[in-house]
Each structure stands twice: as structure tokens, then as C-alpha cells.
Computed example of a mutant assay.
Amino acid sequence: MIQEMVEQVQIIRQKMRAAQDRQKSYADAKRSDISFEVGEKLRRYLSDPSHILSHDVVEVDEQLTYIETPKEILDRKVRKTRHGETALVKMLWTNHKAEEATWETEAAMRESYPHLFT
């Protein structure tokens, strides 16, 4: 019985050594210097005016905030519910693209921005 126990301890020690060796080789691989290959794919950058991005100027106040105002109405629709109908308008806001337009109630927009409905 003691002999079996000694053999099992030896097997466990061998497995622990193998695991430690794998761990060391993994750590050594992680520590090795990373080499970068500069191939023919890299070229010197040539300045091109078409690469310049344009941006919109946003005026901000002392608190670094700005007021959103609608530019135009892009679309209209009527939403029907159980309690009635609601007229909606798709508003394009300043400093935003058409993809960022939002649906607002027509009544609220008419009250706040009547000049857009003439």
C-alpha cells in the first residue's frame, strides 16, 4: 500500500513539473521582444488636399453649451392611436446630419418655431 502511494506521489510530481515547464515556456514567449517587419507595403505619405476634413463651427456660450434650433422639416406623418391621431414632423437640427433628424409633434414645433410652417 505504501509502494502504491509512493508511485502516485511520483506521478503527481512529474505532472507538476510538466505544467511548470509549460508555464515557463509560455512566459518566456510572452517576454520575448516583439519584432516589427517593415515591408514594401509601407509608403511615404504624400500630402493630398482631398484628405482634409471639413468641420462645422459650433458657437458655444460661457457654460460651453449651445442651443439646438431646427433648420427644416424633412418629412411628415400621422400616427394613429386608440385615442386619436398625432401629426409628426421629421426635423433636421443645426449641427446635425440628415441621418440624425428626429420625429417631433407638429403642434409643439408649430408653437415653438412657426416660421418653419409658412
Rank of each mutant, 00 (worst) to 15 (best):
M1K: 12
M5I: 09
V9C: 14
Q14E: 12
M16R: 15
R17C: 12
Q20A: 12
R22F: 11
Q23M: 14
S25P: 01
A27P: 02
A29V: 03
R31F: 03
I34C: 05
S35I: 01
V38Q: 02
V38E: 03
G39F: 02
E40Y: 05
K41F: 10
R43A: 06
Y45P: 11
S47K: 14
H51M: 12
I52M: 07
D56E: 09
V58Q: 04
V58W: 01
E59Q: 08
E59H: 07
E62S: 11
E62Y: 07
E62P: 07
L64Q: 05
L64E: 05
T65R: 13
T65P: 05
Y66A: 05
P70M: 03
K71Q: 15
K71I: 15
T81Q: 13
G84D: 04
G84A: 04
E85F: 02
E85I: 02
A87H: 12
L88M: 09
K90M: 03
M91F: 04
L92R: 13
E100D: 14
W103N: 07
W103C: 03
E104S: 00
E104Y: 02
E104A: 01
T105W: 06
E106W: 00
M109V: 09
R110W: 07
E111D: 09
Y113I: 04
P114C: 04
H115F: 04
H115R: 05
H115W: 06
H115L: 04
L116I: 00
